[in-house]
Computed example of a mutant assay.
Amino acid sequence: MNNYNPEDSENLLICNACGTQFDTAGRNSLKTCFICDDPRQYVPPSGQSFTTLADLRAKHKNEFHPHHSDPRLISIVTTPKFAIGQRAILIQTPSGQNVMWDCLTLLDEGTVAEINKLGGLHAIVISHPHYYSTHAEWASAFNCPVYLSSEDMKWTARETERRLPIAETRTDIILGSSDTGLVETGVVAIKLGGHFPGSLVLLFDKHLLIADTLLTVPAGVANWKVNALGELRERPKGANTFSFMWSIPNFIPLSANEIVRMWGILKEYDFTSTHGAFVGTDIEDDDIKTRVLQSMQIQTKYMGFGEHPFLHALW
């Protein structure tokens, strides 16, 4: 039986910049956010500030948007935008066990009711610490496990027994127990690293959910199919689709060697679409894997490694 009470934690402090919930309600006891003090993130010009779930529930709501070509993928987005503004993606798996990719800070009665109407929530997998948000709250509300990379556990701000460390490069999300029976969801967590040591992507039925482990750029979602006269055209050669960053807001790229290492893992998997951290960053293209490789090669070249053997890599 789940004894979750949303009022128990509604006054715990939440960072306004990154959306992380801390295990204290004392305004005098928490003056900084250790996630925002890390050089991958930032404190806004207005300074460090905190809010609470009680405040967020009064001013924000979550909206649900099924993906247009595969309604099993449902984006959940907080409006008006809060903190980083990422989306979570609820995956309705063939087993009936719903898995949520990434997490939002806002959790309210309407969100719980809508997810339960869609079949409930049986597991959460989070790409990296910037989206850890209120995952302990979600895990309590739905009585489900939360999968985080073992390398990044030090970035958690609240205690919960529901966290499960991902230690391997590949982790198939299998739910249940030896008593109740194990259920294969078809969801695979893949540890690429890069942005954080344990940064993940998630694979489900050739959909690759990438958060910002692979950062979708404007040229990636551009409409190259027609010109100003409505004439058909091809995507220009040399246009990239993704960037690979150690810090997204501070524009610090990953090294060439790290990009090559990430490709060594990702090339083993087949996918025909990518789904980034934000609404509007979905790309469906049977050739999207080639576009990932080309984007990696473009970044490697223009960081000054014009003779790097990776520029000639194929898959």
Rank of each mutant, 00 (worst) to 15 (best):
G96E: 10
K81I: 00
S46P: 00
L56Q: 04
R163A: 05
V292F: 06
S69C: 10
I35M: 06
A88K: 08
I35S: 03
A25G: 04
C144M: 03
V279S: 10
N16G: 13
A211C: 11
H312W: 12
K61M: 06
M245A: 03
K59D: 03
P249S: 05
Q92K: 15
R163P: 02
A222L: 02
T216R: 01
I126L: 09
T281A: 07
L314T: 15
T79D: 00
M1N: 08
E10W: 08
Q21K: 15
A17K: 15
A277G: 10
I173E: 15
K81M: 01
S150M: 13
D37I: 09
E159C: 11
A83T: 10
A167I: 01
Q86G: 03
N5P: 00
T169G: 04
D70W: 02
L13V: 13
T169N: 10
S178H: 10
G238H: 02
K206L: 12
E231Q: 11
W138G: 09
I124A: 09
G306W: 14
A123M: 06
N98Y: 06
I174V: 13
Y4I: 02
S199Q: 06
L293K: 02
G193V: 08
D270C: 08
V201W: 09
V292N: 01
W138F: 08
G306E: 15
E159G: 13
F271A: 14
R291A: 10
R158E: 04
V260I: 15
C33T: 04
A222G: 09
E168L: 00
G176L: 05
V188W: 03
I288E: 01
